[in-house]
Amino acid sequence: MNSIHDVGGMHNLGPVNIDLNEPVFKAQWEKHVFSTIGLYFAGGLCPIDEFRHAIEVMNPAEYLTTPYYVHWYHAMETLGVNNGLFTRDELEAKVKQLTEQEARS
């Protein structure tokens, strides 16, 4: 069964616009997500099939409307919780803390 993540070869999805000057990372947080997933792979916490599955469980509407590294971020969260690195509550508390720190800056 195909899901929203399996659109390769489908027709009528519009042109693929390629920007030859597009940077690999558009923001600093994307570099952090990329390297953290690399640590997951190196530490054996993330076989490629689990990484792909962690992206594929995203809500299809979110998947289609978010940038590439948001998909990796979602996988990072999912794999971190599933592998016991942190709980969902710990993650939400950290996000709240960082958001408050940023607001004060």
Rank of each mutant, 00 (worst) to 15 (best):
M1E: 12
M1T: 08
N2L: 07
N2V: 08
S3F: 11
H5W: 13
D6Q: 11
V7N: 03
G8F: 09
G9K: 04
G9L: 04
M10S: 08
H11T: 07
H11M: 07
L13C: 03
L13Q: 11
L13A: 07
P15V: 11
V16P: 02
N17H: 10
N17Y: 09
N21F: 12
N21V: 04
E22N: 06
E22H: 05
P23M: 15
P23R: 14
V24K: 11
A27D: 08
A27W: 05
E30Y: 03
E30C: 04
E30R: 04
K31I: 14
K31T: 08
H32D: 12
H32I: 04
H32N: 09
V33E: 00
F34H: 14
F34Y: 14
S35R: 10
S35Y: 11
S35T: 13
I37D: 03
I37W: 05
G38D: 06
L39S: 10
L39T: 07
Y40D: 04
A42T: 03
G44E: 01
C46Q: 09
D49T: 08
D49W: 07
E50M: 10
E50H: 07
F51I: 13
F51N: 06
R52Q: 14
R52F: 03
H53A: 14
H53P: 00
A54M: 03
A54H: 05
V57D: 02
V57P: 01
M58W: 01
N59H: 15
N59C: 06
N59L: 00
N59Y: 00
A61F: 05
A61S: 08
A61H: 03
E62I: 09
E62A: 15
E62W: 04
Y63E: 01
T65V: 01
P67G: 13
Y69K: 00
V70D: 13
V70M: 15
H71R: 14
H71L: 12
H71N: 12
W72A: 14
Y73Q: 13
Y73C: 05
M76Y: 07
E77V: 15
E77D: 06
E77I: 15
T78P: 01
T78S: 10
T78V: 14
G80L: 05
N82Q: 09
N83G: 04
N83W: 02
L85Y: 12
F86A: 05
F86C: 11
D89N: 09
D89A: 15
D89P: 01
E90Q: 15
E90W: 03
L91P: 00
E92N: 14
A93S: 12
K94E: 03
K94G: 01
Q97V: 05
L98R: 01
L98W: 15
T99V: 06
Q101M: 11
Q101G: 11
E102C: 05
A103S: 10
R104K: 12
